[in-house]
Amino acid sequence: MSRLTLGNAVKVGLVVVFLPLLAYLVLFIGAVKKNVRAIVEGLVYAAGFSVAVFELGWGGPGVLLGLASMAASGVRAWHLRDLWLPARRRWWHRFVPAESPGQAALAAPSTTAALEPADARSSALAAVAHDARRNRHRLPPTAVASLLETCRTLDAVIVAEKQEPSGDARLEYELDAMVQQYLPAVVRAYLAIPPSMVDSRQPNGRTPKEELAEQLQILSAQAQSLYTSRYSRTPAQLTTTGNFLREKFGHPESAYDFGVR
């Protein structure tokens, strides 16, 4: 974007008019824009120029110090041009609202959000199983077996929901919570404990190993409950379909005769 604007032209013109005071330009920019770094840097150039003028005079070293301060301040002022010489926005940008970082983050699709619900559940469950196998040496053997069995049970429910959604909001909520929150949280919490402390008694009287075993047992029971709830619908649906067919077509006298004997 171009910096050729009326405001910028006036600023540059003023710099030219007050060129002898160029050494104070960075300090002035920093003060106006409240930029601490620019203020500190500008003080150095201004102090050098002031010493050259009021202490050393315009002879020999004074001239060199004064000119060096002016040159350094001018170069740095150009480097800081974004502070005091803003670029002109194109005319079409006036009609496009600036996007805040938060809006950009919301607009950017995340990998998890782009997945179908069933795929997201499968990915989360696969991650739990992967963590269990990878940390087999840190988890109790019974815990690994319980985790993998729970994952298999939940995976069967996920597959059934993917093939034929039940439409049960409560079941879907519990399934999501199990595979994306409860199971991963239990595994992460245990693995965060130093190995030297997994057998230490806690204020509740249990060791982390015992706590892990109990929590996995609860989760296993809940997974089995979801499995039973989901698959108990299949026989009921089959019975309902059978009742409908028997009522509609089960009586020969009410059926259409298509000439089939």
Results as ranks from 00 to 15, higher is better:
residue 176 D to E: 11
residue 107 A to Q: 11
residue 193 I to D: 07
residue 44 V to W: 11
residue 113 A to V: 02
residue 161 E to I: 05
residue 221 A to L: 02
residue 91 W to T: 09
residue 256 Y to Q: 11
residue 19 L to N: 06
residue 174 E to N: 09
residue 132 A to Q: 01
residue 52 A to E: 10
residue 130 H to M: 05
residue 181 Q to P: 08
residue 259 G to T: 08
residue 169 A to M: 01
residue 246 R to N: 14
residue 206 R to Q: 15
residue 244 F to N: 10
residue 149 E to A: 09
residue 46 A to S: 14
residue 145 A to R: 14
residue 90 R to N: 08
residue 97 P to Q: 09
residue 184 P to D: 07
residue 107 A to K: 14
residue 211 E to N: 07
residue 52 A to Y: 04
residue 62 G to S: 08
residue 43 L to E: 03
residue 162 K to G: 13
residue 112 T to I: 11
residue 220 S to I: 07
residue 197 M to S: 08
residue 191 L to E: 06
residue 91 W to Y: 09
residue 240 T to K: 14
residue 74 G to M: 13
residue 158 I to Q: 05
residue 131 D to K: 11
residue 150 T to V: 04
residue 114 A to P: 09
residue 31 A to T: 13
residue 224 Q to E: 09
residue 3 R to Q: 07
residue 212 L to Y: 04
residue 230 R to K: 11
residue 32 V to P: 05
residue 3 R to P: 02
residue 135 N to V: 01
residue 187 V to D: 03
residue 230 R to A: 14
residue 222 Q to M: 03
residue 66 G to E: 01
residue 255 A to I: 03
residue 167 G to C: 06
residue 71 A to R: 01
residue 205 G to K: 05
residue 144 V to A: 10
residue 219 L to S: 07
residue 34 K to T: 02
residue 22 L to C: 04
residue 50 S to I: 07
residue 117 P to R: 06
residue 177 A to T: 13
residue 256 Y to H: 04
residue 111 T to M: 03
residue 198 V to D: 06
residue 244 F to K: 12
residue 46 A to M: 09
residue 26 V to P: 05
residue 60 G to V: 12
residue 174 E to V: 06
residue 53 V to D: 09
residue 84 W to G: 01
residue 58 W to V: 07
residue 50 S to E: 10
residue 100 S to Y: 07
residue 209 K to T: 11
residue 213 A to F: 07
residue 185 A to W: 05
residue 93 H to F: 08
residue 82 D to C: 00
residue 86 P to M: 06
residue 206 R to K: 15
residue 29 I to G: 00
residue 138 R to L: 13
